[in-house]
Simulated assay, not measured.
Amino acid sequence: MTATPQSIWNDVEQIRSQSPLVQSITNFVVMNNTANALLALGASPAMVHAEEEVADFVTIASALVVNIGTLDQNFVAGMRQAVHVARNLGKPIVFDPVGVGATPYRNQISRELLDLAPPTVIRGNASEIMALAGLNARTKGVDSVHGSSAALDSALQLNAELGSVVVVSGAEDYIVSADQVATVANGHPMMTKVTGMGCTATALIGAFVAVNTNSFQAAVHSMAVMGLAGELAARRSPGPGSLQLNFLDALYQLTAQDVAAHLKLGQL
C-alpha cells in the first residue's frame, strides 16, 4: 500500500505549511463550500474563471481544478484557456465531470477538455465515470444511480486511455491507477444530504496534488481526509445543516491521531 496514516499526515502538514494556491474553475452552487474547505485544510483557493485572467492565475497556481457543474459559454472559454496553459506549464489538473451523461452539451465539453489535456486526476461518482468512459450510464442529474464498485471497469478504461488517476466516489471510494486500486471506506451517509460534497472532494484533491507529485498517493490521501472529516463531523451533527459547518471544523482540527485511529484504507 502506497498510502499510510503517516504519509497522509505528511501531506496534510505540507498543505498547512505551504498553503498551495489551488485555482478552481467550479460551479456556482459550491464556490463558497469548496473555497472554505480548501482554507480549512490549509490551502489557498482562487475561484477564478474569466477567460481574460485564468492564464495569469494558472502561472502562479500550484494546481488547477476544473468542475463542469454549471456550464455556460464564458465558463467553458475559461476552462479551455486554463487547461491549455496548465498543460503547457506541466501543472497538475483535476477534472470533475459533474453530470456528464445527462446532456449532449455536457458530454461534448467533457470530451473537448479531455482531448485538450489528460487530467492528472479525474473524480466523479459511478454514473459519471461510467458515462465518461463511454458506457452510456444512466444519470439522474448530478446524482449517481450506480454504486461505486459498478464503475471500476470504467475507471480502469479511463486510466488506460488517458493515464489519469481515476477516483470513483461513493459509500466506498475507489482510486484507480495503472497498477493499483485503493479503497477508502471512511465517510458518513449524511454527507449525501449536503450539496457539493463531491465537488469539495475534487477541490481537496487539488490541494494534495499540489504538494505530492505521486498523483495516485495524493488522490488516496485526499479521499481519506475527506471521508475522515465527514465521519468525525457526523458524530456531532444532528442533521445536514450542522454537518456542513462541522465538516469545515473537522478539516481544520484534524490530527495525526484522528488519521491513525479512524482510517479505513484497503487495496484490491
Score class of each variant (00 low, 15 high):
169 S>T: 15
150 A>T: 12
192 T>G: 09
197 M>Q: 07
197 M>G: 04
164 S>V: 05
225 V>T: 12
166 V>N: 02
166 V>C: 09
175 I>F: 01
225 V>G: 04
185 A>G: 14
220 V>W: 01
216 F>N: 01
167 V>G: 03
232 L>D: 06
165 V>G: 00
197 M>I: 01
155 A>L: 09
189 P>I: 11
142 V>D: 04
186 N>V: 07
149 S>N: 10
183 T>P: 07
146 H>Y: 15
203 A>H: 03
142 V>M: 05
189 P>E: 11
207 A>S: 13
164 S>F: 02
193 K>S: 14
207 A>P: 01
192 T>M: 09
232 L>K: 13
208 F>D: 03
232 L>V: 13
205 I>R: 05
213 T>N: 14
217 Q>H: 15
163 G>Y: 02
171 A>F: 07
162 L>W: 14
218 A>S: 12
221 H>Q: 15
190 M>N: 05
173 D>V: 06
211 V>L: 05
182 A>H: 10
229 A>E: 06
224 A>K: 03
156 L>T: 12
158 L>R: 10
174 Y>Q: 02
144 S>D: 07
186 N>P: 09
202 T>K: 06
190 M>H: 03
203 A>T: 04
164 S>K: 02
147 G>E: 15
211 V>G: 04
189 P>A: 10
206 G>R: 10
225 V>S: 07
156 L>M: 13
214 N>W: 03
198 G>W: 02
220 V>S: 02
166 V>I: 09
165 V>H: 01
160 A>Y: 01
186 N>A: 11
190 M>L: 14
175 I>V: 15
219 A>Q: 07
169 S>K: 09
181 V>S: 00
225 V>W: 08
205 I>V: 13
